[in-house]
Design a protein around this nucleic acid. Structure first.
Lengths: 229, 229
DNA sequence: GATGGCTCAGTGGATGAGCCACTCATCCAG
DNA sequence: CTGGATGAGTGGCTCATCCACTGAGCCATC
């Protein structure tokens, strides 16, 4: 286990992010001046600026010289990089939409993977599939399955799809402990993966599309508390 | 036209980003120490740190206290927020993959839009469609068309799809001048949109899917220099 | 010889005072 | 009524300085 103690700026970012997401500073509103905020949180203006700068990069706020820092309408203009943050703050609100996206994009991308996979992708998939089956903890199985999704996305031959899948994984990883049910029995988790991996390695695009849809829907059901068998 | 002069930190971010993308600092390599970099660029360490912090938020580098700042393997682990940057640096390399993604995700999302659109979405679509037709410049037509994509994504009822579409638009906007051909004749641009918008407003999901695919493929062809008619 | 603790050089983290540049509302002179 | 000057308030940026962390190497100990 890695102990990654947060830095002061990380804590500030988290705090300001919460203040924005909770509605304390709604979209369109101006934040207090940097000098005021720094005083309120008991930090230097320099540190506060670092935090604001990162929120700006995230697309949550916009700073204008001589004017101030304004909260943006991130729900309208934001990108998927906001998902991890939003999921941590309001997980249940987002589950359904993320699952739908995962299911539909997954089917699309994994069908491409079946068409364009190369031998090394298949080798990686087999290795990871084995790692899921042999995992000693649910945690290991879950992480190995994530890598499978990455390899499948890479096999699609479209790097943009790789980015999209990474986005969804990034939203999933911070809350994965809550969605670990499908991996409690690693052996069965691996069995569920078999049809998808076989279809992709065999180059059967139609079948991969169907298998992906089935697999993703089934794991969702289990994540949401359905019984396994 | 808005004159948004770059700030020093913006320039630093751009410079460091180029140094990373150009391979001067390949993934896995450590950047020189902050003190050295600050001296090299003739700026304060404070400003340099602001730039590095933003690159970190972007997922391009990772900084560890007491160790240094390392370039990440952004092609493997990054998200779509990297696209604007990558497109500006190596546009042609990415065009094909972005177009494929736009076409396939667009068809998927706009089919959902046909199923779930609400009256206000249709009203917005009609207004924007009119704005494209009446645009006095290709520029205005292009921007209005972008808004149409945003409204369509919103109409899908899935905010995650909205984020994905925003990502693609963000990658497109910085280079849109190079891809403005389809909007040289705003009237014809609006004509091309008609089947898609009609299908969505009529709630015909299958037809919306097909119309979206046709529309997106046709505009791509024109963007890449095909003749219009 | 292997172990465990120490030191030290180098790195990033954070501070706080200070000055500069920009924006906007206001006011006043023409 | 117009146009320019003013000033308060904002963020941009610098500087000098200190703190905290890491890792390599040394060395006494076992």
């Amino acid at each position: 286990m890695i102990i990654a103690r947060d830095t002061l700026v990380d804590a500030l970012v988290a705090r300001l992010r919460d203040d924005v997401l909770s509605g304390r500073y709604p979209p369109g509103a101006y934040l207090p001046s940097e000098r005021e905020l720094a005083a309120e949180y008991g930090v230097t203006r320099t540190s506060l600026k670092h935090a604001l700068s990162r929120l700006g990069q995230l697309g949550l706020v916009e700073t204008k010289h001589g004017v101030g820092t304004r909260v943006l309408d991130y729900l309208s203009s934001g990108g998927p990089e906001l998902l991890p943050m939003l999921v941590v703050a309001n997980g249940p609100d987002w589950l359904e939409e993320i699952f739908q996206t995962r299911r539909e994009i997954g089917a699309l991308v994994y069908a491409h993977a079946a068409r364009r996979r190369r031998p090394e992708h298949c080798a990686d998939l087999r290795t990871l599939h084995g790692a899921v089956a042999a995992a000693e903890t649910a945690d290991d199985a879950q992480l190995a399955e994530c890598e499978i999704h990455r390899v499948l996305a890479a096999a699609s031959g479209n790097r943009v799809y790789g980015f999209l899948v990474n986005s969804l994984l990034n939203a999933y990883l911070p809350v994965r402990q809550l969605l670990i049910a499908p991996f409690r029995d690693p052996g069965r988790a691996a069995e569920r993966l078999t049809p998808l991996i076989d279809a992709v390695c065999a180059g059967e695009a139609e079948e991969a599309h169907a298998a992906a849809t089935r697999y993703l829907a089934e794991t969702e059901r289990l994540m949401l508390g359905g019984e396994d068998r």
